[in-house]
Design a binder for these strands. Structure first.
Length: 424
DNA sequence: AATCCGGGGAG
DNA sequence: CTCCCAGGATT
């Protein structure tokens, strides 16, 4: 039946037949539309009167209803958008980049305080490039995926080193910078430069997969279909608002498990919504099994300080400060792993003082349990004996580049003095 | 195409 | 507790 109505058949009507200046199709997104489309009577109107019938009954994913749906989307965004600190009248490409990188794998509420602190400390690309990586990581501490901060810092340095006055204003130039992939490059082009550049994040994949009933939305092949949908629905000029509206819609209305289709501005063109099975799209990829792993770390007190090590190896927590840590091997006691970690850094076997409560956190498909053990070291030992180790004053922990799990362990031992300045 | 990078929110 | 979510780099 849906095929009879032309739904989902793209290119059914030529773009030229629907001048964008005409907006007489507002009826097509009335609340009645969904009921009308499913009524058998509509089918009987196909044929020579089909065009007329569609303009009244609405739903089709060919060009004309897209225009009105886009207009509805933009109107909805004007009325419903959340006031967020990066949503200012004029968009600085650098600030767009900062906010978009922070919003990767991170929800808005978590990113806001970090964004405010970041742009206060690093108001420009030049300010960021002039800072140490450690300071950038410290401001990111607690936000997770610290590689984002390292790459953002590296991108700032790359731009400044190139002698350019600012970020590239083209997709290819942006893509060449570390940490900027297809999504972030598109977001900068659309949000800061108002260009017709698809900015397709997880929210947009979900929204447009539902609009076109695309099952493979998240896959490489499906991504091209999502991109085509993005371009098809795009307005002529208001690219900034459009790009952001799609993401906002996914974040607030077209949610993963409980979409509020009744209030959705795209409901007249959304195939999944019309069918009433929006949550069936996109088909989620099967998630890998979770593996439980255990790590142990050594907590050593100095003079109102704690022994920390900069993680130099690629992988988990690169560049961050943490207590000496080792993965607990099979059949190994966590305490022995902590001894091993301390030995690797100091060359000494500490004396065990006590165990601190374990900390649990998740790393993609791993569920990590961190076992902190407190040790004492001989008085003659100094941190300078080990290049990677350093004493960090307790009063400095708040502004130290600590990963969240390590910070939680330190908070249990040192109290709120160890709590981060960014959040919590 | 699969895997790895940390967190947090919802239920 | 469990389940779910998500860009970019690397291989």
């Amino acid at each position: 039946m849906l095929r009879l109505l032309g739904i989902g058949v793209r290119g059914l009507e030529p773009r030229a037949s629907w001048p964008p200046s005409r907006h007489s199709t507002k009826l097509s997104y009335t609340p009645l539309a969904r009921g009308i489309i499913l009524h058998p009577m509509v089918i009987s109107t196909s044929g020579s009167a089909a065009k007329h019938a569609q303009s009244r009954s609405g739903p089709t994913n060919s060009e004309r209803p897209s225009r009105s749906a886009t207009a509805a989307l933009l109107a909805w965004f004007r009325a419903s958008r959340r006031p967020l600190p990066w949503r200012t009248a004029w968009r600085d490409p650098y600030r767009v980049l900062v906010s978009e990188v922070m919003l990767q794998q991170t929800q808005v509420a978590a990113a806001v305080p970090y964004y405010l602190r970041w742009v206060e400390r690093f108001p420009t690309l030049e300010a960021l490039a002039a800072a140490d990586e450690a300071e950038a990581l410290a401001l990111w501490s607690g936000l997770g995926y610290y590689g984002r901060a390292r790459r953002l810092h590296a991108a700032a340095r790359a731009v400044v080193a190139s002698g350019s006055p600012g970020l590239p204003a083209d997709l290819a130039g942006l893509r060449a910078l570390p940490g900027i992939g297809p999504y972030t490059a598109g977001a900068v082009m659309a949000l800061a430069h108002n260009q017709r550049a698809p900015a397709i994040d997880g929210n947009v994949i979900r929204v447009l997969s539902r609009v076109d009933a695309l099952e493979e939305g998240g896959k490489a092949a499906g991504l091209r279909s999502v991109e085509a949908a993005w371009l098809r629905l795009a307005p002529r000029r208001a690219m900034r608002h459009y790009a952001e509206a799609l993401m906002e819609l996914g974040a607030t209305v077209c949610s993963p498990t409980g979409p509020d289709c009744g209030r959705c501005p795209l409901k007249v063109v959304c195939l999944a919504g019309i069918r009433g099975n929006a949550t069936a799209y996109p088909v989620p990829s099967k998630r890998p099994a979770v593996t439980a792993v255990a790590h142990a770390c050594a907590l050593v007190r100095g003079d109102d300080a704690v022994l920390l090590v900069r993680q130099t190896e690629a992988g988990l927590w690169q560049g961050m400060l943490e207590m000496p840590r080792a993965e607990v091997q099979a059949a190994e006691a966590p305490q022995d792993a902590a001894v091993r970690a301390l030995l690797a850094v100091t060359g000494l076997r500490g004396d065990l003082i006590r165990a601190w409560p374990t900390v649990r956190h998740s790393v993609t498909r791993y569920r990590v349990t961190l076992h902190p053990f407190e040790f004492s070291l001989p008085d003659r030992w100094r941190a300078s004996d080990a290049l990677e180790a350093q004493w960090v004053r307790v009063s400095s922990l708040a502004s130290a580049p600590l990963p969240a799990a390590q910070r939680r362990a330190l908070v249990s031992a040192f109290g709120s003095a160890a709590r981060g300045a960014n959040a919590g």
